[in-house]
Amino acid sequence: MGLHEQNRAYPQRLVACIAKSGREQFRITLKDYSDGETKAEIRIFERHRDHDWEATPRHVVIGRDYLLSIVEGLLEAAALLKQEAA
């Protein structure tokens, strides 16, 4: 892969923003990667004093083959946490 391809911007589509705190949020996007695959990315954004949001390096990228299993695992974790809180 040449330098030009490495720096090429690939489109992304915002799916959801979820508040993490007053200063941070999770953003879920679908992003086209250089390998031709569209993947889900969950990235943490921080709000700065000027109120602009900036992406942090903290993120996870999930390919389509794993997305449903990840969602099922998160739902199971949510159910267990709800059970513990009861």
Results as ranks from 00 to 15, higher is better:
Tyr10Leu: 07
Leu68Arg: 11
Gly63Ile: 09
Cys17Gly: 05
Val71Gln: 00
Phe45Tyr: 14
Asn7His: 13
Gly63Gln: 11
His59Phe: 14
Leu80Cys: 07
His4Asp: 14
Glu76Phe: 04
His4Pro: 08
Leu14Asn: 02
Gly63Cys: 13
Ile42Leu: 13
Thr56Lys: 12
Lys82Ser: 01
Ile42Phe: 07
Ser21Asn: 04
Ala9Gly: 12
Leu75Met: 08
Arg23Asp: 10
Glu41Asp: 07
Glu5Arg: 14
Glu41Ala: 05
Ala85His: 08
Arg27Leu: 06
Gln83Glu: 05
Asn7Glu: 12
Asp50Lys: 14
Gly73Cys: 07
Phe26Val: 06
Ile44Ala: 07
Asp65Asn: 10
Gln6Asn: 12
Ala79Thr: 00
Ala9Trp: 11
Asp52Lys: 15
Thr29Lys: 00
Gln25Pro: 03
Ile18Cys: 04
Glu46Ala: 13
Tyr10Phe: 12
Gly22Ile: 04
Phe45Cys: 06
Asp50Tyr: 13
Ile44Cys: 08
Gln83Arg: 10
Gln25Gly: 09
Glu84Met: 10
Ile70Leu: 12
Thr29Asp: 01
Glu37Arg: 12
Ala78Phe: 01
Glu24Phe: 09
Ala85Tyr: 11
Leu81His: 07
Leu67Ala: 14
Arg27Glu: 10
Lys31Cys: 01
Glu84Gln: 09
Glu37Gln: 15
Thr56Phe: 11
Leu67Thr: 10
